[in-house]
């Protein structure tokens, strides 16, 4: 299990990457992250929700009421054009970070 501290800077990018595949809602995003990492990383519900809220505020995502879940409308999230730009920048940043960390830790 990867600690949430190690992943902190990349929660935004991971969520944006999940939503780049299509609109989704809270638990489905969380499940996609857990499954995509073979259970190595799980986002806490509050971390997921606060990250989504921040991304909506910054315009990277838009939120809308979708299908009913147990009698209540689910909030769905959609990746906006701003979100795509941020995701592209994050991908580029990640390649640089990866290069730097690999250089020092795999010598």
């Amino acid at each position: 299990m990867i600690s949430s501290d190690s992943m902190r800077g990349y929660n935004d990018a991971i969520i944006l990457a999940v939503l780049a595949r299509g609109d989704s809602y809270g638990f489905e995003i969380s499940k996609a992250i857990t499954a995509g990492t073979n259970d190595a990383y799980t986002l806490r519900e509050t971390t997921l929700y606060s990250t989504l809220t921040r991304l909506v505020k910054s315009g990277a995502l838009s939120a809308y009421a979708g299908e009913l879940s147990y009698g209540r409308p689910r909030t769905y999230y959609h990746l906006t054009a701003i979100g795509r730009t941020i995701l592209a920048a994050k991908k580029q940043e990640w390649h640089q970070v990866q290069g730097v960390v690999t250089h020092f830790l795999e010598e």
């Binding site: 809270g26 638990f27 489905e28 969380s30 519900e45 997921l48 929700y49 879940s69 147990y70 909030t75």
Partner: peptide, 9 residues
């Protein structure tokens, strides 16, 4: 939203 996510979980 948190309740919905918790219920799904």
């Amino acid at each position: 939203d948190l309740l919905a996510a918790m219920e799904d979980h």
